[in-house]
Simulated assay, not measured.
Amino acid sequence: MKSDLNIKLKQKCEQGISDVWKLRSSLCQIVSNISDECDIWALLVKPICPELLPVTVKVENIKVELKNEHQLQLAKEKRERLIAERDRLRTEPDKGEEFIRIKNALNYSINNIADIKKRSVLRTNRHIRWFSNKTEASEENAPIKFSTSPAARRGLSPVIRVQKDSMPWYQPFSIVGSVAIFLIYFCFIREENDLDLEFNKTLYERIKGLEKHQLLQAYKFNKENGYSVEEIETRLKEIELEEAKSAA
């Protein structure tokens, strides 16, 4: 019963999703047709007047024909569609994907133009040489002294800054000596402790019965392939004696 209900719910969900996608595709098709028939830039620009201005059309020599009525009906429907699309863009201008895409493209273009202008201004100012108009009539052709010119009062920062080292001269020797003494004590002088003995243990000593299990597997393999099993039998006897001693 529950499985039938789940299947029905799943079918309803799939049908609803397919209906939503069909509706979305139809709306996208309508928007694309509208954008192809009219100027999309005029729709994206927010109008200054909150209300539509009345359209006055002067018609001279009106002839009532079926063709003209049909064209007028099509024009009215197109105008209603464009007004509805314009209202939609006015109500949600910052949420539409097309509006955001165009807005981002315009911002990117504006930023690039600003960067190009800035670079061109810097490039032109780099080649401009400024001259001073403050000259004295009596010393116009006389050489300018560097010590009295404004250039002498400007200080230059050194290219290489030498930092004073406050480290004592014996610091490297003390560090090397301390490390050497520690290694000599740790590696040669000190006695072994329980941790060192733990490092010397094999895997068979840590896991009980592992060696016997592997020997039995090797014994079976050698028997099937015709290899010698004397060493394996000897080791198995030794393990059985050790187990008997530990059990006693």
Rank of each mutant, 00 (worst) to 15 (best):
D4G: 00
L5C: 07
L5H: 10
K8F: 11
K12N: 09
Q15C: 07
G16F: 08
G16H: 10
I17D: 10
V20L: 13
R24I: 09
S26L: 06
S26C: 03
L27G: 06
Q29C: 00
I30Y: 05
V31K: 07
I34T: 02
D39H: 01
W41T: 05
L43D: 01
L44M: 15
I48Q: 00
C49K: 15
C49A: 13
E51P: 00
L52E: 04
L53Q: 04
P54V: 07
V57S: 01
K58P: 00
I62A: 10
L66W: 02
K67N: 09
Q71W: 09
Q73W: 15
Q73N: 15
Q73A: 15
L74P: 00
E77I: 13
E77Y: 10
R79I: 15
E80L: 14
I83M: 09
E85S: 04
E85L: 13
R86S: 15
D87C: 15
R90C: 15
E92L: 12
D94Y: 01
K95G: 08
K95D: 10
G96A: 05
R101H: 04
I102Y: 03
N104I: 04
N104W: 01
I110R: 12
N111P: 02
I113F: 07
A114H: 08
D115S: 11
I116W: 02
K117I: 12
V121I: 10
L122I: 09
T124M: 11
R126L: 15
R129Y: 03
W130K: 15
F131N: 10
N133L: 11
N133M: 06
K134L: 10
A137S: 13
N141H: 05
P143S: 03
P143V: 01
K145G: 14
F146D: 00
F146C: 02
T148W: 02
P150H: 07
A152V: 01
G155A: 07
S157D: 06
R161A: 08
V162D: 06
Q163V: 09
S166D: 13
S166E: 13
M167Y: 02
P168L: 03
W169V: 09
W169H: 06
Q171W: 07
I175V: 10
V176T: 12
S178R: 07
L183E: 03
I184E: 00
F188Q: 07
I189C: 07
E191I: 02
N193Q: 12
D196K: 06
T202L: 02
T202N: 07
L203W: 05
Y204I: 05
Y204D: 12
I207T: 11
I207D: 01
G209Y: 01
L210K: 13
L210I: 04
E211W: 01
Q214S: 08
L215T: 05
Q217C: 02
A218S: 13
Y219M: 14
Y219I: 14
K220S: 13
K223R: 08
N225G: 04
N225R: 11
G226C: 10
Y227K: 13
Y227H: 12
E230V: 15
E231K: 08
T234P: 00
R235L: 00
K237R: 10
E238V: 12
E238G: 02
I239L: 14
E240S: 12
E240V: 12
A244L: 09
K245L: 14
K245F: 11
S246H: 12
